[in-house]
Simulated scan of single mutants.
Amino acid sequence: MKNNKKNKINPKYVLAALSLLCIAGIGLSLFRGFSIPAAGTIVNSLMAPMQEGINSFGNFTAGIVQRKHKTTQLQNENEELNNEVDKLQAKLTAMENNLSDYEDLLDLLALSEKYPSYDMTGARIIGKDAGNWYDTFTINKGSIDGIKKDMNVVAGNGLVGIVTQVNANSAVVRSIIDDASNVSGMISKNRDICIVNGDLTLMDSGLLDVELITKGSTVVKGDEVVTSYISDKYLPGLLIGYISDVTENDTELTLSAKLTPTVDFQHLSNVLVIKQLKEDMKETGSASETVASDTQSTSETQSDTADSTDSSEEGE
């Protein structure tokens, strides 16, 4: 134990010796031009591969960070573009809807001019039964707007249906294609009476059933059918549609037919409600005068259309 303590060198002496050697080396290099390998050169030689690796790793890491930043930036830009596309699509849809509403309103205006004897108010459809057809639907006008049960509803070029239920701010309309609907009709050209029925079996083909036509009637395909003046609830002279097929029943004294309605019952959005009731017209005795006036107006319109068509054909 004692021998080990005697042989051990004090660290202070080692440090002092190394310091003297360093000072001597510096002195020689300054005053005599004596050069020794710089410690930095040795260190640099040893550290160069490690530093190159560190630099490569740094560049690789920086590249990942830069790519991630670029990806995030592109994702943000893509999201902004998608939002802008959605906004533009919404604006386009709104414009298309407004254009469709505008065209509907023009049609309703033309329809109101076609029946000048009737006071009408516009209404928007806000609900309907399930399915593609508007056989029963709800409008946004009710009793506070003067709507009453049994008021007639029109759109496009003619009769849509009748109001069956009225609430304060809405009303329910049953259209003439509903299988519970039947309308007293009349062949315009000869005033032969008939009954126009809704029929679920014919709905998919867009047709209505016509029955009880007098067997001696001259009805043919293309004849116009309007509401008759003997109907209990429907106002006279409203266009229902056109005969598309006539069937003669051997065992009956009447004819039957199919009718193509003038209204597109798959694409309704706005309608007109006629504010007169048939029972009010019965009291004033104006029903027959109205149907004669409106039928004549319709005939004159068709005649003018035919004349203009003939003129254009002659011009060609």
Rank of each mutant, 00 (worst) to 15 (best):
residue 196 V to T: 04
residue 200 L to F: 13
residue 194 C to K: 05
residue 209 D to R: 13
residue 212 L to T: 14
residue 244 S to M: 03
residue 242 Y to M: 02
residue 196 V to Y: 07
residue 257 A to K: 08
residue 239 L to K: 08
residue 257 A to V: 10
residue 186 M to T: 12
residue 197 N to M: 09
residue 240 I to W: 01
residue 203 M to W: 02
residue 182 N to L: 02
residue 217 S to I: 11
residue 173 V to D: 00
residue 198 G to C: 13
residue 223 D to S: 08
residue 175 S to F: 06
residue 234 Y to V: 14
residue 180 A to F: 13
residue 231 S to A: 15
residue 209 D to W: 08
residue 251 T to W: 07
residue 187 I to K: 03
residue 154 V to H: 01
residue 177 I to A: 04
residue 256 S to Q: 12
residue 190 N to S: 10
residue 194 C to I: 14
residue 216 G to E: 07
residue 219 V to L: 00
residue 254 T to H: 10
residue 210 V to S: 10
residue 234 Y to G: 04
residue 197 N to R: 14
residue 230 I to K: 13
residue 208 L to V: 05
residue 213 I to V: 09
residue 245 D to M: 09
residue 214 T to E: 15
residue 259 L to Y: 06
residue 178 D to C: 06
residue 213 I to W: 04
residue 164 T to L: 06
residue 179 D to Y: 08
residue 180 A to H: 15
residue 239 L to D: 00
residue 236 P to Q: 00
residue 191 R to G: 02
residue 153 V to F: 02
residue 226 V to F: 09
residue 173 V to H: 09
residue 219 V to W: 00
residue 248 E to P: 07
residue 226 V to A: 05
residue 250 D to N: 12
residue 157 N to T: 05
residue 172 V to K: 15
residue 211 E to K: 15
residue 230 I to M: 11
residue 223 D to A: 12
residue 234 Y to R: 02
residue 170 S to V: 01
residue 225 V to G: 10
residue 174 R to W: 03
residue 257 A to N: 06
residue 225 V to E: 06
residue 230 I to T: 14
residue 247 T to C: 00
residue 257 A to M: 03
residue 241 G to I: 00
residue 183 V to T: 14
residue 244 S to K: 07
residue 237 G to L: 00
residue 178 D to Q: 07
residue 212 L to A: 14
residue 222 G to T: 02
residue 167 N to K: 15
residue 161 G to C: 01
residue 253 L to Q: 13
residue 166 V to P: 05
residue 200 L to M: 14
residue 161 G to S: 04
residue 164 T to F: 02
residue 226 V to D: 11
residue 259 L to P: 11
residue 187 I to T: 01
residue 214 T to C: 11
residue 187 I to F: 04
residue 170 S to P: 06
residue 177 I to S: 03
residue 171 A to R: 01
residue 195 I to N: 14
residue 179 D to V: 07
residue 222 G to I: 02
residue 185 G to D: 03
residue 214 T to Y: 13
residue 209 D to F: 08
residue 181 S to N: 05
residue 203 M to F: 01
residue 224 E to M: 15
residue 181 S to Y: 01
residue 222 G to Q: 04
residue 217 S to D: 09
residue 246 V to Y: 09
residue 188 S to C: 07
residue 199 D to G: 01
residue 194 C to M: 13
residue 186 M to A: 08
residue 229 Y to T: 14
residue 163 V to Q: 04
residue 222 G to K: 01
residue 219 V to S: 03
residue 235 L to V: 02
residue 224 E to K: 11
residue 236 P to L: 07
residue 156 G to D: 13
residue 169 N to W: 04
residue 167 N to M: 15
residue 213 I to G: 10
residue 156 G to L: 00
residue 252 E to I: 12
residue 177 I to G: 09
residue 159 L to A: 02
residue 154 V to C: 05
residue 196 V to E: 06
residue 182 N to D: 10
residue 228 S to I: 11
residue 213 I to F: 09
residue 172 V to D: 12
residue 164 T to H: 04
residue 180 A to E: 13
residue 162 I to A: 03
residue 215 K to S: 15
residue 159 L to H: 02
residue 193 I to R: 13
residue 177 I to E: 06
residue 250 D to H: 06
residue 220 V to D: 08
residue 210 V to Y: 05
residue 251 T to F: 10
residue 248 E to I: 11
residue 174 R to Y: 06
residue 175 S to D: 05
residue 211 E to Y: 07
residue 219 V to Q: 00
residue 259 L to I: 12
residue 207 L to Y: 10
residue 188 S to L: 12
